[in-house]
Design a protein around this nucleic acid. Structure first.
Lengths: 143, 143
DNA sequence: CAAATTACTTCGTGCCACGAACAATCACAA
DNA sequence: TTGTGATTGTTCGTGGCACGAAGTAATTTG
């Protein structure tokens, strides 16, 4: 019986856990996982639909609906781009920004709690490896 | 500009990446992410609906539909429990087992590739920390 | 045996994601 | 300037996912 699972298997399980955490916190904030994901991308700037769909790895047609629903809830607004009449820029409303912060605070609090028992050195090493893996991801996972 | 994100933020981003990988591989194998998740739980044994919904963190009503669709695709079968005529046991069909292995092989191959550039020692430490975090998760993340 | 519990299903609702087809606009070249 | 082709975003139809409330059948409990 294997005591310690390999890194790949661990990644999958942890992914599952974080996903559920996402959904759970989302429920508290009245945000779906997809909405939360989108709000994160909009945290610091307005983004056009095309670029946003790239960031979120979504088809543009999927994004239209996502933005529609978020807009109806007042989380987000569509602004027209003066330089390109085709383009639309998606922006956080104040309410959306508030929801994002609530979500983010809760998420990082829960995750920090999850990591709190790790010795500092181990946590730092862990973070470093995570970042290294993330940096390599685009090359390996395509997209 | 922060060079190194904290562990929590890294976890979120990596989760996002693995999720997308899941979806992408699923497309190749004609499996949805939810189906793949379910097949994994059934890899080595039959499971009743109640237990399975617990494993997958799903409401029972959600699971009914998931099993329905998987059954229609021939991935899974419902067996009746001789000891309890209410109960249903979900089992992999040979075809479901084949799909699961295709999916799993591809997933671990891709993930191993993602981790391949890590020095062995770092990868081992990483796996160890992952397992430690996963072990603590139930206490911290509730459920 | 009656009541409470358990296992699972059905139904209605809403969200999410995709691809094909479409309209408007832009960029560029002849 | 006028095509021509690319880009931006939307609509529409389809299918899957997840929830909660309500219902049915079988089992357990008092």
């Amino acid at each position: 019986m294997k005591q310690t699972q390999g890194a790949a298997s661990g990644l999958v399980r942890l992914t599952f856990l974080v996903q559920n955490l996402y959904a759970e916190i989302g429920r508290d904030c009245d945000l779906t996982a997809a909405q939360a994901q989108m709000l994160c991308s909009l945290a610091d700037r307005s983004i056009g639909m095309a670029e946003l769909s790239g960031l979120l790895c979504l088809e543009r047609s999927s994004l239209t609906g996502l933005v529609d629903r978020a807009q109806q809830r007042g989380l987000v607004a569509r602004e027209s781009d003066p330089h390109d009449r085709r383009a639309v820029k998606v922006t956080l409303t104040p309410e959306g920004s508030k929801a994002l912060h609530r979500f983010n605070d809760e998420l990082t609090e829960r995750l920090d709690k999850l990591l709190a028992d790790l010795p500092t050195a181990e946590r730092d090493r862990f973070a470093k490896t995570l970042n290294r893996v993330i940096a390599e991801a685009p090359a390996v996972l395509g997209h």
